[in-house]
Structure formats: structure tokens, C-alpha cells
Simulated assay, not measured.
Amino acid sequence: MALLNFRRKDTAPAGPSTGALAAMLAGHSIEVMPRTAAKVEDFRALLPQGTRVYIAHIDGTPIDEMVATAARLSRDGFAVMPHFPARIIADATMLADWIARYQGEADVREALVLAGGVANPVGDFESSMQLLESGLFDRAGFTRLHVAGHPEGNRDIDADGGDRSVMEALRWKQAFAERTDAEMAIVTQFAFEAAPVVAWGKRLRAEGIALPIHLGIAGPAKLQTLLKFAIACGVGPSLRVLQKRAMDVTKLVMPYEPTELVAELQAMKAADPDFPIAQLHLFPLGGIGATATWATEQGRVPAERDSA
């Protein structure tokens, strides 16, 4: 997925991307897995200093690999946010052990707390709310806790209570945010259209859910790769953007880049002071190197602005 010795280009592409997207991409985060992170020779050559790096915990990944990846990224100066998937955590003892190991071995104080994509829980937990209400993150002094959001629906939740259940869960998390000292935000599944996710964000605001939204977008990748991941991850109506692209022979062989999507988001943000998206979270489905390089190029401020 990621490439060794990946060289960044020295010049940014022409057009509106040269600086127009810098504000939208400022402070973006990125997601890695231990097996892909192991292929990256030096994250400091790819990512801006202090970038928040989420570490996805796929069912079956040993906690030793997760903690080792977190320790490496932490030593390199990145803000590390490992996943805590409720349905693969057996009990409070295991949860406390993971928290202690991340703290003691990797100096981690942040977590993405989510249910996880496992159909049958292995133990006591089945939801992110149960992990949060255990009190273990608060007692350990975690400074930031993020939760998952699904602008286009979630198969696990939709099968049990649908939209009502989703909103009730988000209201619970909003109330939890108001009684914890940790900073909280919603990080979403990736999508391919701006308008539906912005409408979803505005609906949350109307429902009294004021948590910052970090919108997931897929980094550059082959169309076939994106379609595979989008279907596997349950991406909803915005999948039609990829399907339409697949019907255009001239675009079928060209790698997808999210530049147009980010430009549309930036335009919406500039036009609307109540724009609900706080920042972007990048899924490097086509490789860490390719996504990091794209973000650097699109987020680069033009020379004339640098000298102003």
C-alpha cells in the first residue's frame, strides 16, 4: 500500500488546487494499519509534523503490533489515535490493559472509540458507548476521544433501530462530551459527494449535536480499488459518483483523486458560515505515499501568498 523511498514532486499542479484548497486541508488527519505502516521507511518525509495519525485496529491484528506502530509514530512526533473497537475487546480488564500499554509504551492520550465491524461481539462490549461509560479513558487522563459517524448510514446500526437509533446514540455522545474533560469529535466514513454529507452535518446541528465533524475522504486510488473498499465499507448513495466514473471509458483507466470533492467542500465552506465540517480525515486506499503527496500538493500555498 505505502511505498518505500516515495519521492514528493517539487511543484504543485496548476489550477485552483494551488492554494485554493490549503485551508480545507489544513490540519487533516490520516489513517494507517500496522502492516502498511511497516512498509513506510520514514513517515516524517511524508506527513507534516504533528499530523494526527489514526491506527486502524482490524480484527485479528495483535495488540503488540498496534502498540509498536503507535510507539514508532509517537517517537516521530505525530499525534497518535489508535482505534478501540468495542466488539473485539473482551472485557474491562482487556480495555484497561490496552489503555495502559498505549500510554506506557507509546505515550498515547487519544482514541477513536467505535463499535467495530465485527458482527458478533467477542465479550462484554458491543458499542462505543459502553467503552466510554466504563470511565477508563477519563480515569487514564485521555485528552481527546473521537467517535464514528456515518453520513450515508451504517449497516450494523441501520439493522437495529435505523435512523432513530443513530440519532439517539449521537445525542448520548453529545451529552457525554459535555461531562468529560476530553475533547471530542465525530470522524466519518469516507464519501464521494459533498452535498449529502454537508446536509447530514447540518441535520446534526439542528438535532442539537454540536460535536466537530471530521469528514472522511478517500485518497487517490485506482477506480477498481475504490469500488472494492466502498462496497466492503458500506458506502451509501455517493457510491454513484464512482459508478458513473466507471461508465466513462476515458476516466476508467485514470486514478481517482478527491480534488474536485475537496474544492466543492471548500466553496461551500467559503459561502456558508455555518458549514458543519471542521476538517478532513484521509483514507489512503491507494497507498500512504500517494495520499500524503496529493495532500501536500493540494494544500500548498502559492508562492505569491507565501511572500505576502
Rank of each mutant, 00 (worst) to 15 (best):
73 L>F: 14
163 D>G: 04
254 M>L: 04
74 S>H: 14
116 G>S: 00
125 F>V: 02
264 E>P: 03
307 S>L: 13
29 S>A: 15
170 L>R: 07
99 I>H: 07
143 T>F: 13
195 A>I: 06
191 A>G: 01
75 R>S: 08
285 L>D: 05
276 P>L: 07
13 P>C: 08
6 F>I: 09
276 P>R: 02
198 V>P: 00
103 Q>I: 05
255 P>R: 12
18 T>H: 05
31 E>N: 08
14 A>H: 09
111 A>L: 04
161 G>M: 13
164 R>C: 00
236 G>T: 01
284 P>S: 03
171 R>V: 11
293 T>D: 08
136 L>Q: 10
92 A>Y: 10
137 F>P: 03
19 G>Q: 04
275 F>M: 02
170 L>M: 14
122 V>E: 06
91 D>Q: 11
308 A>V: 09
225 T>M: 05
256 Y>F: 11
145 L>W: 07
241 V>L: 15
180 T>Y: 01
54 Y>R: 10
64 D>N: 07
286 G>D: 10
167 M>T: 13
64 D>P: 01
25 L>W: 12
34 P>T: 08
118 V>T: 10
236 G>F: 00
145 L>C: 09
260 E>D: 04
143 T>H: 13
6 F>D: 12
249 V>I: 02
177 A>Q: 03
89 I>W: 11
302 P>I: 04
198 V>Q: 00
60 G>H: 08
10 D>F: 13
2 A>Q: 09
207 E>N: 09
76 D>W: 12
97 D>W: 12
253 V>Q: 07
40 V>Q: 06
22 A>S: 09
167 M>G: 04
120 N>I: 09
235 V>P: 00
126 E>S: 08
239 L>D: 07
36 T>P: 02
207 E>P: 09
301 V>I: 15
